[in-house]
């Protein structure tokens, strides 16, 4: 993972302040998170409760929604969209996605179907986000 946006400032040897941009909504509040001995003491700069929670979470255990695609055999397109069933620790995002490289899934597929379990040792499953029916079973309406 790359550089983080925060800059630490040592405040008289007592607390560190970290800066984050809240991603909860398009407003993008600039949050300041005060930390003493690894514990979040105060979050400032938020406009709503969600922002306050995000600041603390982003400092202690940043997580991300993760989507990618895998090979699809027997479908109308070559790739099947999938996502992690729950937010993934930020530092595990790349390894989770890379473990899915080369994976092939055969039609039919249901939305929400589990495609892989405990991916990259995260304990997190990966599920399909679209349904695929074998071509010959396409229903005819009208």
């Amino acid at each position: 993972m790359g550089e983080h946006r925060h800059t630490a400032t040592i405040d008289a040897g007592e607390s560190d302040t970290f800066a984050y941009l809240c991603t909860g909504c398009p407003l993008g509040c600039r949050l300041e998170v005060d930390v003493v001995d690894g514990d979040v003491i105060e979050v400032r700069g938020f406009s709503c409760k969600k922002g306050e929670r995000y600041g603390a979470q982003e400092h202690t255990d940043p997580r991300r929604a993760v989507s990618t695609t895998v090979w699809l055999v027997g479908g109308p397109v070559e790739r099947l969209p999938v996502r992690a069933a729950e937010p993934v620790p930020k530092d595990a995002v790349l390894s989770l996605v890379r473990e899915l490289h080369g994976l092939e899934v055969h039609a039919p597929v249901e939305v929400g179907q589990t495609i892989a379990t405990d991916v990259a040792g995260t304990g997190i499953d990966v599920i399909a986000t679209r349904a695929v029916q074998p071509k010959e079973q396409l229903p005819v309406a009208g």
């Binding site: 993972m1 790359g2 550089e3 941009l21 991603t23 398009p26 407003l27 993008g28 991300r64 995002v93």
Partner: peptide
């Protein structure tokens, strides 16, 4: 803003 953070900053 959330896309700048999660798509660019996260990956440097």
């Amino acid at each position: 803003g959330r896309n700048v953070v999660q798509c660019l900053d996260d990956f440097g």
